Simulated assay, not measured.
Amino acid sequence: MVNSSDFLHPRSRYYGKVQPENLVFNANLQEFAQHVSYICNLETAGKISPDEAYKKIRDLWKQLKRSKKELGIGENPFQNDDEQKDS
């Protein structure tokens, strides 16, 4: 039997560099995408206005951006694994 949570909130396998902060950000990114999809569907169905949809997505984007900053994602984009081990 399929778990309804898995059906409503599917998660894709993560193939990137396995670090705790990357995994957390990936989960946040997938949640963001799922919420944006719901909001788009509500707006398309006429359940919410385009302005309300925009505001909700903007707020979600701000949360994702804050998460990225707090996790330190992309702060040292040119630093490779050897340099991190030496530090």
Rank of each mutant, 00 (worst) to 15 (best):
P50E: 09
Q79L: 15
N80Q: 06
Y14G: 01
V2E: 10
R11Y: 07
K65S: 13
V36D: 03
D81Q: 13
K17M: 12
D51N: 13
S4M: 09
K47W: 07
G46S: 00
F7D: 05
L8Q: 05
P20G: 04
R58W: 08
N3R: 04
S67C: 14
F7H: 05
P77V: 01
A45S: 14
A27P: 01
Q19T: 15
A45G: 10
E52A: 10
A27K: 12
Q79M: 15
K69Q: 11
Q63P: 02
L23Q: 07
K65F: 12
K55V: 04
N22L: 05
G72L: 01
F32N: 02
S49C: 04
K62C: 06
S87I: 12
L42W: 15
Q79C: 11
D86P: 02
G74R: 03
I39L: 14
C40R: 15
G16A: 03
L60T: 02
G16F: 04
V2F: 12
R66G: 06
L8D: 05
L8R: 08
N41A: 14
K62F: 11
F32D: 00
A53V: 00
D86T: 09
S49N: 05
N41P: 02
C40T: 08
Y14P: 01
R13N: 10
D59I: 04
M1N: 10
S67I: 05
W61M: 11
V36K: 08
Y54I: 04
Q84P: 00
L71E: 01
K56W: 06
S12C: 08
K69M: 08
N3T: 02
N28H: 13
K69R: 11
A33T: 11
H35F: 08
Q84V: 11
H9E: 06
D81C: 06
T44P: 00
E52V: 07
F32R: 02
V18C: 05
E43D: 05
W61D: 13
L8M: 06
S49W: 02
S67V: 07
E43C: 14
L29P: 01
K69L: 10
F25A: 00
Q79I: 12
E70K: 08
N41I: 08
L23R: 05
R58S: 13
E70I: 04
R13H: 14
E83M: 06
L60R: 04
T44G: 08
D51K: 14
A45T: 06
Y15T: 14
F7G: 03
I48E: 00
K65H: 12
F78P: 01
R13F: 12
Q30N: 03
H35V: 05
D82P: 00
S12R: 15
T44F: 11
S5C: 09
M1A: 12
D86W: 08
Q34L: 13
N41C: 13
